[in-house]
Simulated scan of single mutants.
Amino acid sequence: MVGDPFTAYGRARERSPIARVLTPGLPPLWTLTRHEGARAMLADARFAITSGSFLRPDVPEDCLPYMRTMSEMDGPEHLRLRRLVAPAGRRRSRRGSRGRRPGTSRRIVQDLSAGLAGG
């Protein structure tokens, strides 16, 4: 699947509307292979995403808070973060920042390097 995901997913769609997927480091999971099924599932409240919905790899307990995503947040917490990141996702904003990215990235790497070197 990794080498040619389009062909692999195409075959899975032809065979069945649902497929069992094996992913290294995680237990087997089921995935919907067709658009209609995915839309129906996303509209069904029984499949709402909650903090208990996510499978976590075997990591130390103290690392788990750092693996949390916005998808796991509800209500005000999610809305606050979404409002913070939404402007960066707008096409006009991305286009305007295109020229700044290399310099910004370079500065971040330099700052990290200096911090690791004790400077």
Rank of each mutant, 00 (worst) to 15 (best):
L81F: 11
R13V: 01
G25C: 01
H35G: 00
T50C: 03
R91S: 08
T33Y: 03
A8Q: 08
C63P: 00
A45I: 03
T23I: 13
G103C: 03
R107N: 09
P102D: 04
R91Y: 13
T31R: 12
E14Y: 01
P60N: 08
P28I: 00
R80H: 15
A38G: 06
I108G: 05
D58S: 06
T31I: 06
L81Y: 14
V109G: 05
F47M: 05
A88T: 06
S16N: 10
F47H: 15
E77D: 14
R90M: 14
A43F: 03
R91K: 11
H35Y: 09
S97M: 15
D62Q: 14
D4R: 05
I108M: 13
R11N: 12
G25L: 01
R100L: 15
G52M: 07
R46F: 03
L29H: 14
R100I: 05
P60C: 07
R15F: 06
L55C: 04
G115M: 15
R107S: 13
P76L: 12
S51E: 15
P57H: 06
A48G: 11
S16Y: 04
C63D: 14
L22E: 09
L32Y: 03
Y9Q: 09
H35C: 03
D74H: 06
R106K: 12
E36G: 08
T104P: 00
S53F: 02
G118T: 04
R107G: 02
D111C: 08
A38L: 12
S105H: 13
E14M: 05
D44A: 01
T23P: 00
R101Y: 13
L29G: 11
I108H: 11
A40I: 02
L22S: 07
G96V: 00
L112V: 13
L42Y: 06
A45E: 14
L81W: 14
F47G: 04
R20H: 08
G75N: 10
L26K: 03
R46H: 10
I108A: 14
T104K: 13
F47P: 03
S113Q: 14
Q110G: 09
L42S: 07
M70P: 01
E36A: 15
A114E: 10
R90F: 09
E14H: 03
E72H: 02
V85K: 08
A86G: 05
T50R: 11
R68G: 03
L81M: 08
Y9S: 11
P24K: 04
P27R: 08
R91A: 13
R107C: 07
R68K: 14
E36S: 13
F6E: 15
E77T: 07
V59H: 08
S51G: 11
G75P: 02
G75D: 10
C63S: 07
R91T: 08
L84N: 00
C63E: 15
A86F: 10
L81H: 12
L42D: 07
A117P: 02
R92F: 05
S93A: 14
Y66I: 00
L32D: 01
D4S: 10
A114S: 12
S97I: 00
E72I: 01
A43L: 09
D4I: 00
L26F: 15
A43W: 03
G96C: 06
R98F: 13
L29W: 09
P5N: 00
A88D: 10
P27G: 07
S16I: 00
F47T: 06
L29T: 12
D111V: 10
G75Y: 04
R11C: 01
P102W: 02
T69D: 05
G75K: 05
R83N: 14
A86V: 02
G3V: 04
P60I: 04
V109H: 12
